[in-house]
């Protein structure tokens, strides 16, 4: 059997195992064969939480992969370039203004987050269009600036809010899966369905874009349209996660990069691998987050950031 197929099968097994076994873990171990109240806890709280974590992780990983491919750099992800903070800004504005609007299948909160992330993606995209020879360092610095700018706007909005609204915003900004339940699970699914399908279908185009935009264009890829489609899907997936659980950083940077080391750079294998690995990764991180012996749950965003910070620096140092 071909090596990438083997790796992908192992990742699939890992993902299924994480979905089936992780619900047993927590502050109290509950085996799958429990009954009564414990079975209720398992079915009503633990399973939806692990599934939510998996889907959120998969989407963060896929959107990270899309950015890494489009910008041809492992350090460029929606989180580092300010897309998450754009989505957070959208939500803060939404809560402050009390807007309610809705499209079938997507909550109004996610639409607000989507507008915010689309704004940030537009900013990043516009910056790269401004000068064709934009260096990756400039791009990352611009991402930091966008991040700071949006974060300050969020703080400003918070300052004008009453304590109840302000509390809601702070809870969101921590990045936690504590609010995971079935409605949120079903809210997340359409985001993954759309974003994941687009990315799995575009594996040839992403391979060519990774090599270079000029080359992709002359091989027959309608690069403008494909890039917009990828930016759109990325915004959608980031918005889905942020609207439901807040910004969770670094999954989108670590997971695709680790997968690239495991399975190679061919997106035919890399995209499904990133989906499975990212999902399992966040599910494991979240299980740690709520089963620490101290008894108190910590937001999963803190765990991923604690892992991701050193990883970012390692990537920065190992770059050729």
């Amino acid at each position: 059997m071909k090596k990438p197929l083997c790796v992908l099968l192992i990742l699939l097994l890992l993902a299924v195992a994480s979905l089936l076994l992780l619900p047993m873990a927590g502050m109290k171990f509950i085996p799958l064969w429990s009954e009564g109240k414990e079975l209720d806890i398992l079915l009503l709280f633990r399973f939806p939480r692990v599934f939510c974590a998996f889907i959120a992780g998969a989407m963060l990983s896929l959107s990270g992969l899309a950015f890494q491919t489009l910008f041809r750099n492992a350090l460029a992800t929606p989180f580092t370039l300010g897309v998450s903070s754009g989505a957070t800004l959208g939500i803060a504005l939404f809560i402050r203004l009390g807007l309610v609007f809705s499209l079938p299948g997507f909550s109004s909160l996610s639409i607000a987050a989507f507008c915010g992330s689309l704004l940030a993606v537009g900013l990043v995209y516009g910056l790269t269009r401004l000068k064709s020879c934009f260096s990756i360092t400039t791009l990352l610095l611009a991402g930091i600036a966008v991040n700071f700018f949006f974060s300050s706007l969020v703080l400003l909005i918070q300052d004008f809010s009453d304590p109840a609204e302000s509390f809601r915003m702070v809870k969101w900004m921590m990045g936690s899966l504590a609010s995971a339940d079935y409605p949120r699970l079903f809210n997340l699914l359409p985001f993954l369905a759309v974003g994941g399908t687009v990315m799995l279908l575009l594996h040839r185009e992403m391979n060519l874009l990774m090599v270079g935009e000029d080359l992709a264009l002359t091989r027959g890829v309608p690069t403008g349209r494909i890039k917009k489609l990828l930016f759109f899907s990325t915004s959608l997936m980031v918005a889905g996660v942020v609207a439901n659980f807040g910004p969770i950083g670094f999954v989108g940077m670590m997971s695709p990069h680790i997968c690239r080391l495991l399975i190679g750079a061919d997106h035919r294998w890399l995209t499904p691998a990133a989906l499975l690995f990212g999902g399992a990764f966040l599910a494991v991180c979240d299980t740690f987050a709520h089963s620490l012996p101290s008894g108190a749950e910590i937001p999963v965003g803190i765990i991923t950031a604690l892992l991701g910070g050193p990883f970012f620096i390692w990537l920065l140092l190992s770059r050729r």
């Binding site: 002359t218 091989r219 027959g220 690069t223």
Partner: peptide
């Protein structure tokens, strides 16, 4: 030309 057609 469509980009694909030109690429042939």
């Amino acid at each position: 030309y469509k980009s694909r057609e030109l690429a042939t």
